[in-house]
Design a protein around this nucleic acid. Structure first.
Lengths: 351, 351
DNA sequence: CTGAAAGCGCTTACAG
DNA sequence: CTGAAAGCGCTTACAG
């Protein structure tokens, strides 16, 4: 409306400087709130910024400063509620410190993870947070792991109390409901050919936790009661494995599912086979499936404070970046506790 | 192990050029596969790239080229399954064309959306795709809308067949199950104070669709049968509104929920009040809640091909960017059809 | 086919 | 308090 500029070009710092009648250096200093700028100059610069609708070019700034204020976030799949919530927690924390977040999906494939890391490096991210699927390699910036943690934990790691969590589930089945034939269906726990050793740490911990809890309870654990899914935790694989469990001579009376997608697969199989939960078989779940309370039946599971996991990972990274305070300097794996949410699938007469 | 370099500094194009014994210009041309490079030079450059583990700095490249190959993606909340899936569809399509995606959550707040757009502009994204919550403003790059579409549709828009979709649901309730007292609980359809006119277009379309379908069926529609939620589609709000519906003198025998989170809120209220679905009341849902089939009861809903919606939006943007082929050049709202998925919550004896 | 040079938009010692 | 100058790492006309 007012003056029509010859070009639609976005205003640059030079435009602002010209409009304010100062040098680019002074304009820059005024904008960044740095010292050594006269109040008068500062005011003219701000006025020009306002008038021109100037917004500094992040690219140029990052290139010059050597820091992008960007953090890469690698997850297997944002469409999985757990990762989506953890992501939001991390994002919120990071944005509060002026960082922004680049999200990449790895689809639980090590090579896609490696490719994503390369991309992130090309974009000069200042750090990464990742739920690794085994494709991690150092890209020269601090890395914080969450959910699944490799042997070398980099700048920090946040994981769940996997063993204790499974223990809570088993103990409940045994102590409250008197189950003796309990099967386990969890994430892979062994090293797959061609994979990095670290990948299945949390799967291993959960399985160890299961064995330990069964041992403590003095219960027999036939090998056919222990099943592990594919690396992608595909629900249809869980459905197939559950069907196998049901076909056993002495079928289990309870199933502990070691991850939320697996739980849904288990329920799917049970629905298909018209096996009633919890009447015919009890089901408990390591993670909370989305809307666990509205499922048929409501699923007893472990609440793992997804958001908090993301927040905490972000805080550790901020600490590593020298910004925030990670709360701790020792680089041990930090464990987030789990809480048992009793619903109906275990046999309790709740909700 | 081999040679230890003095600095841990990342190799730059200059390092590659030096190592290959050519100028930076030639190295650059060799890398980008451009013409006018001798095979010998090309080979030496590639060898140097390999040896040094060089990866071009995207920041510098983007600054120089004036294009970042980055696309901003704005959604209300990635933790909502629909958006997560649409995001993945868009991301896949864009990455196949060499773009990468910056995701931002707006929490359905217009001001957060505006702030996110400013950030995106600062990062010089080449385009944006957004499910707007009313905070859109032009940032000088092509914009494609999906899900919710403003009056000025920018470079393109993909939306659902809102009216037809609601029609499918109502028709099913009427034709198959003979319902006559059908209530509607959907997203806001009216302009809120201080909001951009465009925000609630899809809410309006769904409500219009509901009224139209009821009219076609010759059914009465008492005003108290029509409820709209808050702008954020909070499930607890839906729970409260459902409770009100149940308390009506002549309570409805069926509820059409106009969005997935609302559906979950409706079910929550029904569970709380021990109202049985579909025995006491039928429920149908516009969107598919996650694992609609495992809910109690499995929910009859509209499958809206979330991923495809994201893909299509991405294709339109690519077309606007002059890259891909959008399939169409006219800038009308593109509509994605919806399919009825019959399950048990409507009263059908399925699943 | 090749290289010297300019420049993308910013920031930051360095002199004044 | 201020500005001239160099430089972040790349690309691209332009001359040869």
């Amino acid at each position: 409306m007012a003056e029509q500029r010859p070009v639609q070009r976005r205003p640059t710092l030079a435009d602002v400087a010209a409009a304010a009648g100062v040098s680019r250096a002074t304009a820059s200093r005024a904008m960044s709130g740095g010292p050594n700028v006269s109040p008068a100059a500062r005011e003219r610069v701000w006025a020009a910024v306002e008038r021109l609708g100037f917004e500094p070019n992040h690219l140029a700034r990052s290139l010059r400063r050597g820091s992008t204020m960007a953090i890469g976030l690698l997850v297997p799949d944002v469409a999985i509620a757990f990762y989506a919530r953890a992501l939001k927690g991390a994002q919120e924390t990071l944005e509060r410190s002026g960082y922004h977040v680049l999200v990449m999906n790895t689809e639980r494939a090590a090579d896609r993870e490696a490719a994503a890391l390369r991309t992130l490096r090309a974009h000069q991210v200042d750090g990464v947070i990742l739920a690794t699927s085994g494709g991690y390699r150092d890209i020269g910036v601090p890395a914080v792991f969450f959910d699944n943690v490799p042997l070398d934990i980099g700048a920090g790691a946040v994981a769940l109390c996997n063993e204790e969590g499974i223990g809570l589930l088993v103990d409940h089945l045994v102590d409250v409901h008197g189950h003796e034939r309990i099967a386990y269906l969890g994430p892979p726990a062994a090293v797959m050919p061609g994979e990095v050793v670290s990948t299945h740490r949390s799967g291993r911990e959960r399985l160890d936790g299961f064995r330990a809890a069964m041992g403590r309870a003095g219960l027999a654990l036939p090998p056919e009661y222990v099943r592990t899914s594919d690396a992608r935790l595909t629900d249809t694989v869980a459905t197939a494995l559950t069907t196998e469990l049901l076909a056993l001579d002495r079928a289990p009376t309870a199933i502990v599912a070691g991850a939320d997608t697996l739980t849904l697969g288990v329920l799917e199989a049970l629905h298909e086979q018209r096996v009633r939960v919890p009447d015919d078989i009890a089901v408990v779940s390591f993670d909370e499936p989305t809307h666990a309370g509205l499922l048929d039946p409501p699923v007893t599971s472990l609440d793992r404070h997804d958001r908090q996991l993301g927040c905490r990972a972000a805080e550790l990274l901020l600490a590593a970046l020298g910004g925030g305070d990670g709360g701790t300097t020792e680089s041990a794996i930090e464990r987030v506790p789990l809480e048992l949410r009793v619903r109906r699938s275990c046999g309790c007469p709740v909700g």
